[in-house]
């Protein structure tokens, strides 16, 4: 009975949602002279950033990104406060089956390469697809691989929180330095440089590198928390 009710509710919802969406032509340029054109011309012309999405995320909506990083920090804090009874009171690692020597050696070989790929993705965030969040997630997957293949692999909580808070302080203080020359919070105060150079775009690479370190440290701490959950 409940299933029929839910199915009919979903059918009505889906029909009305699709009816609205069919009125928009798929792939039609319906914002011909809007905010899109402003972003697409200002970003390479005045700011020297090739990747327009990065320019929006870090510069135009930089304050929003600061809030987003705070949400991630809150999620990590909430997860460890739900799972742990006391501070640094770790439980036993749950090990379903121990990994073989091939897996252990292979992950030891792969680990530096994964870290390097993550660093590449967040350093080149203003030139290529990718950025701080994606690079941070790649770094965290490297740590996840090590944690899964070695039962006694330890990640230092002190080092993680140090990296995390230093990256957060960097983000906020670069934002505060935007007040120089009478600017606003998170405004660019460095020379922009040429388009498609590695050192270009002013403060955008600095902020995205800080975001990459912060996200990597936060996600690694989150994985470690979930693995060492205390009964």
């Amino acid at each position: 009975m409940k299933k029929i009710l839910v199915l009919s509710l979903l059918a009505v919802f889906g029909v009305y949602l699709l009816e609205v969406l069919f009125k928009i032509d798929f792939g039609h340029q319906f914002f011909l002279h809007g905010v899109k054109d402003f972003y697409l011309t200002t970003s390479p012309d005045k700011m020297g950033v090739a990747n327009v999405v990065t320019a929006i995320v870090v510069n135009f909506r930089g304050f929003d990104t600061l809030g987003e990083v705070t949400v991630l920090f809150l999620a990590t804090t909430a997860m460890s406060s739900i799972l742990y009874k006391g501070r640094h009171q770790l439980g036993e690692r749950a090990v379903l089956f121990s990994s073989s020597r091939i897996v252990m050696t292979g992950s030891k070989l792969l680990f530096p390469a994964i870290i390097l790929l993550g660093a590449y993705v967040f350093i080149h965030g203003h030139l290529t697809p990718g950025g701080g969040f994606q690079g941070g997630v790649i770094i965290a997957t490297g740590f996840l691989l090590m944690l899964l293949s070695y039962e006694d692999y330890k990640v230092s909580h002190v080092a993680l929180s140090l990296v995390e808070s230093l990256a957060g302080i960097t983000f906020a203080s670069v934002g505060l330095l935007g007040f120089l020359n009478g600017g606003t919070f998170l405004q660019n105060f460095l020379p922009t440089g040429g388009l498609n150079n590695l050192i270009s775009g002013g403060v955008i690479p600095i902020i995205y590198i800080a975001v990459g370190f912060k996200v990597g440290a936060e996600l690694t701490g989150l994985i470690y928390t979930a693995l060492n959950e205390k009964d």
């Binding site: 949400v71 739900i82 950025g131």
Partner: peptide, 16 residues
């Protein structure tokens, strides 16, 4: 990009 990060945080807290 923002929505993915928020969704990730929600999933992590829900799973814990």
């Amino acid at each position: 990009l923002t929505a993915i990060v928020i969704g990730f945080g929600v999933t992590a807290v829900a799973l814990s």
